[in-house]
Design a protein around this nucleic acid. Sequence first.
DNA 1: GTCTATACTAAGATAGAC
DNA 2: GTCTATCTTAGTATAGAC
Lengths: 199, 199
Amino acid sequence: MARKSGSSAEKTRPLVQAAAKRLFARHGYAAVSMRQIAAEVGVQAGALYLYTPDKQGLLFGLLNTHMEEVLAAWAVVDPGGNAGTRLQAFVEFHIPHHLERLEAVFISYMELRNLTPENFATIEALRRSYENRLEDILKAGVSEGRYRLEDTKLTTMAIIAMLNGVNTWYKESGRFSREQVVEIYVDMVKRAVGVSARE
Amino acid sequence: MARKSGSSAEKTRPLVQAAAKRLFARHGYAAVSMRQIAAEVGVQAGALYLYTPDKQGLLFGLLNTHMEEVLAAWAVVDPGGNAGTRLQAFVEFHIPHHLERLEAVFISYMELRNLTPENFATIEALRRSYENRLEDILKAGVSEGRYRLEDTKLTTMAIIAMLNGVNTWYKESGRFSREQVVEIYVDMVKRAVGVSARE
DNA sequence: GTCTATACTAAGATAGAC
DNA sequence: GTCTATCTTAGTATAGAC
């Protein structure tokens, strides 16, 4: 049953994506050649075109997968309930999730301008969708009279920037464990939205 | 006295830097060719090598100038005195200064990996130096018993990330003026370091 | 499914005329 | 100080053998 020539296609495909992710993250999309990616995988440049229509397709595939994964993962752990609980859960989700995906996150911020306009629009919509998850929490918190903040959109951007910043400096070998970092950021975020640290 | 052939060199040099800045910011260092830069300036590719040893020199020059400018500008406006005054001044300096230099800031974050190791070390040292200006304020604030925060280094990184984030979303045509954004961020930063909004 | 070979285009940098 | 011309290298992508 099924295909005869076992074929290593379904082994090679993920290898191509992994190699592209690693190389794009390290050297940048524009600086990486199809030959380099092929060399990493251990095939010839021409063989890559079995798995992607072109170089752009590799980049878009990575970013699209990454964004959909973030959204799906948050949907799973979102506890619902009051804004206080959800805001804390969001920080506790966001930091470790993104620390686990350093390369994809890096590419997502650096290579947006190398997407075609259509692809850019798709990724941008997903990103906004994720930001809206946070803003909805802040809006709910304001409605509940729980937060004291000037503007939910602006505060959303400030919090996301702060949380994403962790990816740029966190070292596994550093002074803080991930759990400690998360705890400190939970406190900082709560204070930033106008909740006392010990609610 | 002085040179005979008036020469437009001292007019062309800044044009080259400006064109490189604009193009690197828009398309990325790796994606921009010397021919494109030359075309923007209105000279031939070969002529660029009168003003830079190579493409790398253009990138390094931009980043180096940018970082030294930030440090010098803060040194001028740093009010000294107590940490509360200085922290507010830092936020009021940082946001507009960086909004005025969108392209240079963008390049400074995106193109670090395209610097040679030596050049990277130089720029990185300048960047750290700037971060230390903020951390010193936080340390002073802690000594003065003014702030309630877990860790000055980590809080420094969080604040810088938050402030830099403004560059990614601020639009002149948006709902807030720069002054309003600064005011809101001053409040958020003060709360994040553990000071009540109305100190 | 992968390889070799190649068409085509463009890159960074330099030499030498003007 | 700038131009034209060119060297050398490397890029994306495709065709066709195996």
